[in-house]
């Protein structure tokens, strides 16, 4: 314990939809300030894994601990844990009827019960952090995909979470817009935010991650630092996968 204290522990998560086993026992621990990146082919359960952490999907088996408190089987206390575990979605899921700033402040007002002035100040501060303060009064339909995703990151940040889950945050964006979102995420990592990221952006994975976890068929099959994955001959499958991606991206 002590300096080694884990902020998040994920133990042996299993999930099946009918006969289809999506997660076959995934475990890992996260220290404060770490960025872990999950890569691998589509349909290997990466997104389901993130959703099992904040219980948007209920795992069939396995446990999750945040600061040594159990998140799984926590009943209505899950709403408390979800404030501490932010989430950013592939399709942003901004609240379509609210302006950018109100998207960020709605949970501060209704969940954290902050007073209006403090919530507004906090919301504007988070928008500034992602470079979106000039767009505070715009509705989601008036934002580009990249802008919408930055607002949704601000929305997650505003809750002062201990960890943020990024579920393919740039998969719905063209390359130009992807860059602006990745820039924001890199900054967050640098500022010491604890992050779990599911992505196909290998450049981001290799430059930002403390650890890369390669998943296939519902399991973590290889894991290590970016340097290990690139240089250690043992990591054949990951290298193979990254290689394919590079070829694909260069085409």
């Amino acid at each position: 314990m002590g300096a080694d204290k884990y902020i998040l522990r994920v133990e042996d998560i299993h999930k099946a939809y009918g006969d289809r086993e999506v997660l076959k026992g995934v475990s890992f621990n996260v220290r404060k300030g770490e960025t872990k990146v999950f890569i691998g082919p589509s349909g290997t359960g990466k997104s389901t894994l993130l959703r099992c952490i904040n219980q948007l999907t209920l795992p069939d088996q396995g446990r999750v601990f945040l600061n040594d408190e159990e998140v799984t089987n926590s009943g209505t206390r899950i709403n408390y844990f979800r404030q501490k575990i932010g989430m950013v979605f592939q399709n942003f899921y901004l609240f379509d009827h609210l302006t950018a700033v109100r998207n960020v402040e709605v949970a501060l007002l209704k969940v954290k019960k902050m007073d209006a002035a403090a919530a507004r100040e906090k919301a504007l501060e988070e928008l500034r952090r992602v470079g979106m303060e000039d767009w505070a009064d715009h509705y989601p339909a008036e934002l580009s995909g990249g802008q919408a995703q930055r607002v949704s990151i601000a929305r997650a940040l505003a809750m002062d979470p201990d960890v943020i889950l990024f579920d393919e945050p740039t998969s719905a964006l063209d390359p130009e817009l992807t860059r602006e979102v990745l820039e924001v995420m890199k900054n967050l990592a640098r500022q010491g935010m604890t992050m779990l990221v599911v992505t196909h952006e290998m450049g981001f994975a290799l430059s930002v991650a403390n650890e890369v976890l390669f998943m296939e068929h519902g399991k973590v099959v290889e894991r290590g630092t970016p340097a290990q994955l690139l240089n250690d001959p043992a990591f054949t499958r990951t290298k193979n996968f990254i290689g394919k991606f590079r070829d694909y991206n260069e085409e």
Binding site: T76, M87, F89, F95, K110, V111, M159
Partner: peptide, 22 residues
Amino acid sequence: SEGQMTAARSLGMTRFQAIRHV
């Protein structure tokens, strides 16, 4: 869309709060 409820719940809103505010 389902995502609106998912996003609201991910912020720690109860089901009732999500229905009421989102």
